[in-house]
Design a binder for these strands. Structure first.
Lengths: 197, 197
DNA sequence: CCTACCGATCGGTAGG
DNA sequence: CCTACCGATCGGTAGG
């Protein structure tokens, strides 16, 4: 029983270290020997904790996907305007990423190394998530809250690009907190950077 | 002479095919044997055209960097407002990318596989380019054209994220042209998506 | 551009 | 978690 607990936590240690390694070198260039060395064990010993290198990637990608999904579920329950929903969606997304910036970077950059049918599943989850944001934008246009001239595909892709690159430059030790960052990003997208007065 | 020209054009064929392969599989996961097969030759034969796998990556990354730089040089010569400069800079960047979406994707996603001192040089070019856009934003704030409350780092990072992800979803056979896309992206960033009337 | 090959390294297994 | 390995594959060279 305590043995099972120990194994579980050791497995998580392996996965977390792997995330750091995958983020730094990329999945393909990161070797299991590199990973073992970081953990102070032999490469062969890794396989008492995990089944394969790809299993690690899978758990990182799909766990993050589940977190993003949960966050957006909460937002959609709210009865608020489209711009408020968009704001909450952005803040939620950033909060999820901020909880694990390393896993977020792997989620974003390394998912393509997933083999089938996992890659297909992952891509479906992602397109679904993006479409839920698109729905919010469409609602905003319908309600007369957003310009009818905006290109929704461009807007949603711009949003996602900004969101997904955040792990590359966001400094968690810096002054700005995740929620504040989300608010500013949402404000910039909704209101632009031009002075309105 | 015609031999030299043939070699040159063959070298370029190799590089272009490599760009497609690097984009699709990632640099580390793309093997020279894969590349050779795409070209219908043996892996060893590649080395009569190129010195090493990394030499290909270097030429792709640094050639793109030079194109981006040239484009921004032109923009900075113009005597126009900050928002117009920003607009022209965005359009220029997108035009450069649209000329070679494959090389652009490699430039963005694979540069980290450059070895030193090339990686350092590349990163310096990139930060310099980003800072030139930041200067445009600062000018806009100073001139009272942009809100003084905007986070310039966030704004410039958002801009770059959107710009750099474009090769991932932009469909060159689609209806929207590069210049039009640049205009819309600039408009969205400057004016936001909210109705102002 | 080819054949023939090199040493290094890869993910992973057997058996303890 | 270790020692001892495996077959496959890697980037690249020699010599033509």
């Amino acid at each position: 029983m305590s043995e099972a607990l120990t194994n579980l936590s050791r497995k998580e240690q392996v996965i977390r270290k792997a995330a750091e390694l995958f983020k730094e070198k990329g999945y393909a260039a990161a070797s299991m020997r590199d990973l073992a060395q970081l953990l102070g064990i032999e490469a062969a010993s890794l396989y008492s904790h995990i089944k394969s290198k790809e299993e690690i990637l899978r758990s990182l990608c799909f766990d993050m996907a589940a977190e993003f999904r949960k966050s957006l579920d909460e937002v959609e329950k709210q009865h608020v305007s489209a711009s408020e929903k968009l704001r909450l969606g952005i803040i939620g997304h950033i909060q999820v990423m901020a909880k694990d910036l390393t896993a977020s970077a792997v989620f974003m950059n390394e998912h393509r190394h997933l083999s089938e049918p996992f890659l297909r599943d992952f891509l479906l989850l992602r397109i679904n998530y993006i479409n839920r944001f698109k729905t919010i934008l469409e609602q905003g246009v319908r309600d007369g809250e957003f310009k009818s001239t905006i290109d929704k595909k461009l807007a949603v892709m711009t949003l996602f690009s900004s969101l997904n690159w955040m792990p590359m430059w966001y400094d968690p030790t810096g002054i700005i907190e995740p929620v504040e960052l989300g608010k500013q990003l949402a404000d910039m997208l909704v209101n632009g950077i031009k002075k309105t007065s």
